[in-house]
Write a protein that binds this DNA or RNA. Structure first.
Lengths: 156, 156
DNA sequence: TTACTTTTGACCTTCATTGACCTTTATTAT
DNA sequence: ATAATAAAGGTCAATGAAGGTCAAAAGTAA
């Protein structure tokens, strides 16, 4: 039932291919034609759903024979990977971004879905009964940093 | 007595669907039109009758193709037990006490050892880079309360 | 009355869609 | 080779399409 808009549909389409291939190369115009939208919408989809925050690497080439290549990044070296994620945790962080980081940990099998849910629970605004938004975000960032640091030494 | 006002009627309508499906996705404007009320009344109904305290999870998305999704969470059978633990969480709580509560959750197989470790990580003083000790304990109490509340329901 | 709940609407924020205009790269004609 | 042209993809701002917030007004019950 999720995915009423074109962007969601295109996202799902690309991710389905990525699940099998881990890397795709598309022609912007073709995809746009296929989904009956304007070419720049593809850029929108990529920008909002395939960012490096979300674990994707996007490269492109213009001109004749141009393409857009999307790659789902996978991290073999866990410590290095956690460092990268840690770098994404800015001094203040919104719940949504925090969740997208947890999601990446799930994608890369560092956390189970259930674990991520537990942790997300503790990162909600609700969990901090604080009125000041800046203080809340700062705090959440601290919590998440602590979690990521903890994960690197945790044995399973 | 129940069902006199529009809010009650909308509540009943949504809960009837939820009884069958456990999850619904609605368009705020459509529902509002259907019940001849203003859109923000839907928010009122959700806020007063589908809160997380009442066992519902509500997510929404704005913009084109936006929606409001309501999910009925399953009640845990350890609920009574969780209530007891929740009572132990005072307004402020030390790390040691927090850990002992987590330990009880492990003993009762609500959490795995690893999960407890993850959560403990987020409850350390270190996780809150706050100097004031009272504020820290207050916060930790909030976090732990949120966690315990979250554990009462589990997603499908 | 008084306090609580419901109803309404003005105004706000977020997300999606579109199109005009720009930049880069490859091919083709001279 | 060079210059023109074609063939990509990129940017950005305007517009549209949802849902969110908040406080005032209107009901309701004690």
């Amino acid at each position: 039932m999720v995915g009423q808009n074109i962007s969601d549909i295109i996202e799902a389409y690309l991710k389905e291919i990525l699940a099998a291939d881990r890397q795709i190369e598309i022609n912007r115009a073709s995809i746009a034609a296929q989904f009956n939208c304007v070419p720049s919408q593809i850029n929108y989809v990529i920008k909002t759903r395939f960012s490096s925050q979300q674990g994707y690497l996007v490269e492109s080439k213009r001109g004749g024979g141009g393409y857009i290549r999307i790659e789902k990044l996978r991290y073999r070296d866990q410590d290095h990977y956690l460092n990268q994620l840690l770098a994404l945790v800015t001094a203040q962080i919104s719940f949504e971004k925090a969740v997208s980081i947890l999601q990446q940990l799930v994608d890369n099998e560092v956390l189970s879905t259930h674990e991520a849910q537990l942790l997300a629970t503790m990162l909600t605004d609700d969990a901090f009964a604080v009125t000041d938004q800046v203080a809340t975000d700062t705090l959440r960032a601290n919590l998440l940093s602590a979690l990521l640091n903890g994960l690197r030494y945790q044995r399973f």
